[in-house]
Structure formats: structure tokens, C-alpha cells
Design a protein around this nucleic acid. Structure first.
Lengths: 132, 132
DNA sequence: ATTTAAATTGTTATAATATAACACTATGTA
DNA sequence: TACATAGTGTTATATTATAACAATTTAAAT
């Protein structure tokens, strides 16, 4: 087991908010939601987000500039991530597929380079939106 | 062969600039570089970028908010992209691997969903930076 | 050729996302 | 205790991106 990071007050407040959210949250939406808890400035939010990303508690969805809690116990460090994104409802799901992660971790480019760190974002329609 | 898109003046100016650049270009850097050619406002740049991305002539590197010309004749539409990014020198290379694109195009998630569109960004050190 | 629709342009203003810099405080550890 | 490291609070500012509207160009369809 890896050492659990003890979160600071701001980090905990912001992590809890993101963790409860059914959808990815944007930085300024987070800011708005935590102002009553004393977090008043963007930098306070961004600093907590940076740390939470660094220790793998949350992930950034790059194409959306938004953040979701990690629900994949295997990505202890934020280095190998994969998501599916619905282009209609914007639902985002973290993909945890051993096959996929093995394939990507072992992928070599033309020059034989391997990459430990990657981010993959799949786009399509989620089941609900497909039916509509 | 797919129909070649005829670029408009602004689109052509901006595409040429990105195409000549050895590294991904950011929107406001593009703006600065094309001001002498009469493109004066951010929106003019962003509109051209949007169109160029849409028709697959350029790709956006989401983690960097930057744009590179497509050098992969097979991605006619900007829907299946993969890049390697050097975390030191920020060199970005488009990966064109039949194996990888086949694997990802055929990947099914837990629910059996397939995704035609994806963006994959690998991070690591390029050869040059590895040596240093 | 003329009309019409669609796409593109030019422009000003503003929204949304993110970081710099600095002084101060808490925490862990030697 | 003393020291280093990480986190905080704050103001200001940088960077990235879009809204809204009027004018113009282009394509194609009568």
C-alpha cells in the first residue's frame, strides 16, 4: 500500500466537493461553491487542484478544463489516465481497463520510445444520449 | 481521395504559419505573428483555428493549448489523434501507428461502447532530452 | 445575371481560465 | 529550538477564449 496523503484543509474541502459532484467541475465553479467555506481566491483553488492532481486524487479532463475525482484505486499517481466523454451530456467516466493500460504502457513509437505517462480521452455518446 | 478543402485567406495564412513552425503554436503567438498580414483580433485567429481543426488540417494539443499541423495523411477528419510530448523541451510529435489506431478504434469499454473519436497524449522525454 | 443562403470577415467588448509575486503561517523533523 | 518545506491569504495581472452584431464574400440555384 502507498502512503495515504493527508490533505490540508483547503485540499480536503475542494476534494470533497469534486468527489461528490456527479460531473467534472470547473475551477471557477469550484471557487463559487467553496466561498462560503472561506476559500475566496482563484489561486487557493488552483493550488489545491494542482496538488490533488499531483497525488492522483483527482484528474484533469484536458479537453474540458474540468476536474473529476479518481475512482480508480490503481492510478496512485496521476500518470496513466483514460476517460470516455459524452459529447451531448458531457458525462465523463474514468476507464479502468487492464488491457488498455497494459497496451498503452507497453506501446512503443517509431523510435522505440516508451511512455509511462499518458492521457487518453475518448469521445462519443453515452448510452442515455444514444437512445434519445 | 477526399476532397481538398480550399482555405480562405485567413485560414491559409494561419495554416502556413503553423505548418512552418517546428513546434506547436499558441493562439496569441499566432495572432502576434500574423498581425502584419492584417489579422488583428483574437477572434479572427480562433475562427480560423476552429475551421482548420474541423477539417483536420491542424490538431489541438489539449494539454498545452497549442496547435500543430497534421502530418498524417490518414487523419482526414480530426477524430483520432495521438501525440508524444517531451516534458522538457515540449517537442510534440504526431504518432501514426496503424497498430495503435486500430487498437483504439476497436477498444470497447465495460459497457461494450466503442468510440470513433479519441485524443491520446503520451508524455515523456524525447531522445535529445533523455541524453542530457 | 440575379437572388438567396451559407460561410467568412472585421470589430469591440467581455468572459473564462490560470499564474506571478510577496508576506505570512503551519508542519515536520533534525 | 531551529530550520526547511509546504501551505495560506491576498492583490494584481496574464493567458485563453467567446458573445454579439454588422458587413462582405462565396457558392449555388434559380
Amino acid at each position: 500500500m502507498h502512503k495515504e496523503h493527508i490533505l490540508t484543509k483547503n485540499q480536503q474541502i475542494i476534494f470533497d466537493l469534486i468527489d461528490k459532484s456527479p460531473e467534472p467541475m470547473k475551477a471557477y465553479s469550484i471557487l463559487f461553491n467553496v466561498q462560503k467555506k472561506g476559500i475566496k481566491a482563484p489561486l487557493q483553488v488552483y493550488r489545491a487542484l494542482d496538488k490533488l492532481v499531483e497525488i492522483g486524487k483527482i484528474h484533469k479532463i484536458e479537453s474540458r478544463n474540468a476536474f473529476i475525482a479518481c475512482h480508480n484505486s490503481s492510478c496512485r499517481v496521476a500518470k496513466a489516465t483514460a476517460f470516455s466523454i459524452c459529447e451531448i451530456c458531457e458525462k465523463v467516466t474514468e476507464i479502468s481497463s487492464t488491457g488498455l493500460s497494459k497496451y498503452l504502457a507497453n506501446f512503443k513509437d517509431k523510435d522505440g520510445m516508451k511512455y509511462i505517462k499518458y492521457n487518453l480521452e475518448f469521445f462519443g455518446l453515452c448510452k442515455k444520449c444514444k437512445v434519445k
